[in-house]
Every structure is written in structure tokens, then in C-alpha cells.
Amino acid sequence: MIGEIINERYHLNAELGQGGMGTVYLARDTVLNRDVALKLVSSPRLGKDGRSRLLSEAQTVAQLKHPNIVTVYDAGEVENQPYVVMEYIQGDTLDKHQLDGYQQIVDAVKQICTALEYAHSHNIVHRDLKPENVILQPNGNLQLMDFGLAVSTTSRMTENGLIMGTVAYMSPEQAFGYEVTPASDLYSLGVMLYEMVTGSLPFEAEDALGVITQHIHAPVVPPIAKAEDLPGPLNDLIVSLLSKEPDQRPASAADVLAVLEDPSLFESAGSLDKELSVLDRIVRGRILGREGEFAEVRSLWLKSIAGQGQTVLISGEPGIGKTRLMR
């Protein structure tokens, strides 16, 4: 594709990166004589309706003007492939950076909250908030990209019924295919914040289904169990953001920002004076000696989310791992 011209206007000069939705190129707008970032969407399962929805979303997102949101300039189709033209921002995505200390993490998340509150006030939900969609500029400014442009999770089912996409940051309601609201973005923000302060994701497994199941059912291990110097209010905020029920999370990004801007945020140093339960301290590892049972339950679960109702009954002596198997 390098060297090609899209719709007689955008000259593709270099590839900037690839993701689940397609490829991003550094392009030259030959009409306005400026560099832009052009995302060429290549999801084979998008379909005509999906392409129309994506272009409609791009038109809506183009109305957003905010210092922490990458501006959308244009959108269109070329050979049945949608493309979105965006402001070209120099910098790397957040997943390539290690923020130094809680203060720097809080400063970064405050910028994300500001962007989210602005977008939500315009009835736009990101739907795919993750470090790869946040650009950190050399001056420390953060900008969110791909607002509202995520392909619907319900359209990304494999032949086995498994939802594909970025499941590590997916809210429980997204996993179920329910309506996505601003609360879903706040859950994803909670996952990001958890990862920033502990160095690990709240839910991990060997495959996407295992992660999705934990998002839906498994209680989160409080981050203070992994980062014992974490300020108490920050720990409580992350746990609330990761609530399974949307109405149990903070009401808005503005409410999250208020907590982060509270002068007393760092006054309460993290401690384990309030004892954590044994379960809160356990980091889920691999199940040993249950490969056969796990494979059978997983097969039935795949059939269930594909629309084929199933019933699973598990019995056994206390303490042999029934609950762990289901998680």
C-alpha cells in the first residue's frame, strides 16, 4: 500500500502500526498539504451495515474538539474498505511507556478522565479504551484516539462462538453484548489504572474466554494486595471502577477526576492494617489435574454463548476446586 493514493487525495508514505481493526499509515493530504494519520479498516466481518455504522460514527467523532482527543478530519471508503483520516500526533502509545510513580500515573489518568467526560457529554462512548489507544506526546500531553470507532463485539464471533477483540479491558456488559454506556469506559479505565499501579492486569488467563469469564464472575483482587504502598483512596477508586454492575461504578468520569484531584488522595498511605482476606491475596494460577473437566466445561460454554442452551452440574467434596474450575 505504501506509495498508493487514497481517493486521489491521501498519499500513503509509511506504516505507523497495525491493530485488530486494520492498519494506520502516515499519509500526506495533497489538498491541504499536511501530514495526517490514515486508518484503513480491514475487518473481514465488518459487512455493509458495519461499514455504514463506522463511517457514521466517524462523522460524529469529527465534531469533538478537545486537547486530549485526536481530531478526526475525514472518512470514506475505498474498494469497500472504510478509512478514517485523523490528526497526526508524534509520540508513542501508552502501552510502550512505564509511568514513574503514583503521581505521574494520576496525572495521566486525569487527562484521560477529562477527555472521557467531554466525549460522554456529547453522547459518544469510546468502547475500546486501552493503552494502545492513548498517545503520550513528548511534552507529557495525552491524546485518546479511535473514539467510538471500535467494531461491535457482537459482530466479531468466530465459528465457535468466541468473542474476539481486546478482551483484557472489556467490561462485563460488553462481554454479554449489552448496550454500552459511559460506565463501560469507566470499567476499562479501571483496568488500565489497575495495570498501571500493579504492573499486571486484574484478570488473566490462557485464552480470551477465560478472561471474559473472569470479567463477568470473578471478584477483583484489590490492587493494594499487589502494591502495598498504594494510597487507600486510590485503591478504593480502582475497586469501584471494576464493579461488575455499571450502577455501582462512579457516576461519571468527572466523579473519577474529582477523586484524583482531591488533595488528600496521597495523605492516606497504603497499608494492610485493614486485613485482606486470603482470597484477596491469591493470584489465580493454573488449574492442575483438571484438564479433562476444564475442556468439557469450556466446550459447553462456547455452545452456550453461541445460542445453544446448556446445563452444567458440578458436585464433589468441599475444597477440591469446584468454584475455581467454574471461574
Rank of each mutant, 00 (worst) to 15 (best):
M1D: 12
L16A: 13
Q18A: 15
T23D: 03
V31Q: 13
V36R: 02
L38I: 05
L38P: 04
R51H: 08
S52A: 13
R53W: 10
L54V: 01
E57K: 02
K65D: 14
K65P: 00
N68M: 04
Q81Y: 11
V84K: 01
E87M: 05
I89T: 11
H97C: 08
Y102W: 10
D107F: 05
A108K: 00
Q111P: 00
A119I: 08
H120Y: 08
V125K: 05
P131C: 07
I135Y: 05
P138E: 04
N141W: 03
F147N: 04
S155Y: 05
T158A: 06
T158L: 08
L162P: 03
T166S: 15
P172H: 07
F176E: 14
P182A: 01
D185I: 00
L186T: 01
S188A: 15
G199Y: 02
G199F: 05
S200G: 09
A205N: 12
L209S: 09
G210F: 05
I212W: 01
V221E: 06
A225R: 02
L237T: 07
D247Y: 15
P250C: 10
D255C: 05
V256D: 00
L257H: 14
A258V: 11
E267Q: 15
A269H: 15
S271L: 04
L272P: 03
D273L: 15
V278A: 15
L279W: 10
L279F: 14
V283M: 09
V283C: 09
R284L: 13
W301K: 03
G309M: 09
L313N: 08
E317N: 10
T323G: 04
R324L: 12
L325M: 10
